[in-house]
């Protein structure tokens, strides 16, 4: 085998021989539709909220003495986990980055939308090294 062919084979084989790189992704539920969230307005009813976003993942109840089962807020969530592992001869790196889409819809005493808090960061989960903030 000529020197050039040897070097080409080595270039292709070395990354396989020198270690191992693993990428993995896990999602929980479905991404939240930003357009649907943008349509939520103060004063909307609970039915209108569930009509746009679907059934909530969690309901926050008030614990008022006279109205303990009042639904105070609806929570919607989607999780996206990106995992990276690098086994590189002497060093082994593992990194898991977990980001979420999360929407919390607050209701007033009359059961109408009072506030909407949204953080749609699920798409920002990234593979990478375990460095950085």
């Amino acid at each position: 085998m000529s020197l050039v062919k040897h070097l080409l084979l080595l270039t292709l084989a070395l990354p396989l021989l020198s270690g191992c790189l693993i990428f993995g992704r896990r999602t929980t539920d479905q991404p939240i539709d930003a357009g649907a969230v943008a349509q939520l307005k103060a004063g909307m009813s609970k039915n209108e909220v569930t009509g746009k976003l679907g059934a909530p993942h969690e309901i926050i109840f008030s614990n008022k003495e006279h109205d303990p089962l009042r639904e105070h807020a609806y929570v919607y969530e989607y999780k996206n986990d990106a995992g990276t592992a690098l086994f590189f001869f002497v060093v082994n790196f593992g990194n898991l980055d977990s980001k979420r889409d999360r929407v919390v819809v607050f209701f007033d005493e009359a059961g109408k939308v009072a506030y909407v808090g949204q953080s749609l960061k699920g798409g920002e989960a990234s593979f990478g090294f375990p460095f950085g903030k």
Binding site: I60, A73, R102, V104
Partner: peptide, 22 residues
């Protein structure tokens, strides 16, 4: 106000309502 805080910080990770307070 709560609405302003939600706009600046986004959706909270944990919510509880006790005795009229969020």
């Amino acid at each position: 106000a709560l609405g302003e805080a939600l706009e600046r910080l986004g959706a909270p990770d944990k919510v509880e309502w006790k005795n009229g307070k969020d």
